[in-house]
Nucleic acid binder design. Structure first.
Lengths: 185, 185
DNA sequence: CCGGCAATAGTCAATCATAACTAATTATAA
DNA sequence: TTATAATTAGTTATGATTGACTATTGCCGG
């Protein structure tokens, strides 16, 4: 009977969460995600439509197609009472389970012995610089006019970014100095 | 002409990196990943085979099928000189580009206003507990007999885990006390 | 006033990823 | 000794994901 949907999919949670605020059509939802949730999710437009339509089949949202003028028709999604319950259930699960983020950079770290130390130091210096730029951008977009939850998630993200910067500074300096030793004979 | 493979795929880097140490057959590789790299990658067996065979087509590895007794035949993969270059190239890219890890938990955080504060506090308490258990396990598996790079990547991971624990403790306590205020009239 | 670029809105063919499967071999214990 | 489970080894059918595409409207400069 192909057991049900007890998987914690943060993307459905996200979509339902957006619909908790107000009904919206697909484009709105995807536009919002692209412009504001770059750091929160990697979901793509076509996937969002798939998930929304699937949630419609499950009765968590309703779709009604709206024609404005003679543009391409809009699919307007609204959350249902069952959808609200699903949202709360997913939210609870998301809150109580720690996630294990994957740091793709760790793969490189693992193999850093295969490159000369000074080259590694150089590359990590690069990484640091780019990261600092990213962080500046991130901080610029950081207004204080958000709901408590949004604020919290942004601060959380920032903390990890800052840790990463500090760590990179430390490690890069370490590698640098340890190659200097050799260089200085 | 469908531009080439300049995408930074940390999974290929990982596979090539493993083959840098010694040739191995598919099962060995996958077994190693499953048992040791739980926190580093999410690649699955079937995917690893796909990538390995694709890299064979690209000339980065060679496959030769080996028959031991009359068991299912083994596919033994070895890295080629071109593969070594590819490995170094991917490694450099991996080292110089910061990754933007996705914290799935941030989705839940964003919507925490939709639940009573004390309930949120409770769930986050749960999360904290589970995370601490995870961290204990992780630290147990943390021997000091690794190559410098492995060591570094493990420490990196641990730092972020520790930050997460500290952060959760702080936030959970904050929510707790702010609901206490109300409760205490 | 018209050519082209950006924004709006969604679909779909092609690729990607993996759960589930096959199948032999070797403990494990009954 | 003989089922039964666990390990070894890889393949495939299916479902998930998304890059590329269609199409209309609005806007701006020349």
């Amino acid at each position: 009977m192909k057991g049900g949907n007890d998987v914690i999919d943060e993307r459905s949670l996200l979509l339902l969460g957006i619909l908790m605020a107000q009904s919206a059509h697909g484009y709105q939802i995807n536009d919002f995600i692209e412009k504001n949730l770059l750091y929160v999710t990697e979901i793509k437009k076509a996937t969002a439509y798939v998930l929304l339509d699937r949630m419609a089949l499950s009765g968590f949202v309703t779709v009604h197609t709206e024609q404005a003028g003679n543009r391409p028709p809009r699919k307007v999604y609204s959350i249902t009472p069952e959808g609200i319950e699903q949202f709360q259930s997913l939210l609870r699960q998301n809150l109580e389970h720690p996630d294990s983020p994957i740091y793709k950079g760790d793969v490189g770290l693992m193999f850093l012995d295969h490159l000369p130390k000074d080259e590694v130091a150089h590359h990590l210096q690069q990484r640091l610089q780019r990261l600092q730029e990213q962080m500046n951008l991130f901080q610029k977009g950081l207004s204080h006019s958000h709901a408590a939850g949004i604020q919290l998630s942004l601060e959380h993200r920032l903390l990890h970014m800052q840790l990463e910067v500090d760590w990179l500074e430390r490690i890069a300096a370490q590698l640098q100095s340890s190659t200097d030793e050799k260089t200085v004979q």
